[in-house]
């Protein structure tokens, strides 16, 4: 479904991507991990055509994103969903208007059907009751969920998540990942999740690709990655796992919350 072939990208003379190659099969969800500034988000933006490569190709469903223009690009993007790191909700619109926006602009559905679809989608992401709030009036977790609802309302075949849990506390981050998993089970999209949420994300993905020094350093199943003896992988996965364990073991105090409280917060 998605094939990235020898992708190069330079920024101010620095090669951020140095020949990245990666494939994602239809219905598969992969996690893209790597250090900060390693080029994960840049890679994701190449997949949707927001950035053009200096060299190499990104093929999405048989179409080369670097050469796609006009209506062809628009019709391919109609099949894509993208969850931005900051949500990218339109801040002058309510949550309802944000989710309804693509339906109003891209379909011929009447207002009643749009309303029904939006309310359904918001219920699926647990945002019932917040329909008429503005993005600035809701929490970071709720913004992410509203953005997820907006991305999913057009039933995309391909979903790309740019750090869906960044800036959220561990409990809310885990809830967002569970939400992504349940949406995948419902819609069977092909997905790439860019994340630092290691190893929590391993539970919901089929494969994990690690971007390091501008190339895909490792591309394997979560189980094999966890048992890898590769020093770079160990340093990244091991450290993340340890920090996660430290969190859970009580070295860092995480307040106990009821499920109701969590739902309210996220």
């Amino acid at each position: 479904m998605i094939t990235i072939d020898g992708l190069y990208k330079l920024f101010d003379g620095k090669d951020v991507l140095r020949g990245v190659s990666l494939g994602v099969k239809k219905g598969e969800v992969i996690a893209l991990i790597g250090g900060s500034g390693s080029g994960k988000s840049v890679l994701l933006k190449h997949v949707v055509g927001l950035m053009k490569p200096d060299r190499g190709r990104v093929i999405v469903d048989g179409m080369d994103m670097s050469t796609l223009r006009g209506r062809d690009l628009t019709s391919l993007r109609d099949r894509l969903g993208f969850l931005f790191q900051g949500g990218a909700l339109f801040d002058s619109m309510t949550v309802f208007e944000n989710v309804a926006f693509p339906l109003k602009e891209k379909t011929k559905l009447n207002d009643e059907l749009i309303r029904e679809r939006v309310f359904n989608e918001l219920e699926n992401v647990g945002l019932s009751g917040s329909e008429y709030k503005y993005p600035s009036q809701i929490s970071g977790g709720m913004v992410k969920r509203a953005a997820l609802a907006r991305a999913l309302v057009m039933d995309p075949e391909i979903m790309l998540f740019d750090e869906p849990t960044t800036g959220l506390d561990p409990v809310i981050g885990a809830a967002i990942l569970n939400l992504i998993d349940s949406c995948h089970k419902r819609l069977s999209f092909t997905g790439i999740i860019v994340t630092h949420e290691v190893p929590k994300v391993f539970d919901i993905v089929d494969r994990v690709a690690m971007l390091h020094e501008g190339i895909i350093w490792v591309d394997d199943t979560p189980e094999k990655l966890m048992s890898s003896s590769e020093p770079i992988v160990r340093a990244f996965v091991g450290e993340s796992a340890n920090s996660s364990i430290r969190h859970q073991s009580g070295n860092t105090v995480v307040p106990q919350r009821s499920q109701g409280e969590i739902n309210e917060k996220i």
């Binding site: 993007r77 931005f84 801040d91």
Partner: peptide
């Protein structure tokens, strides 16, 4: 400008708009 830096312009583009 704010729409640009908060990726709202990119969001429009990715909706095919």
């Amino acid at each position: 400008g704010i729409m640009r830096i908060s990726e709202q312009v990119d969001a429009l583009e990715l909706m095919g708009l």
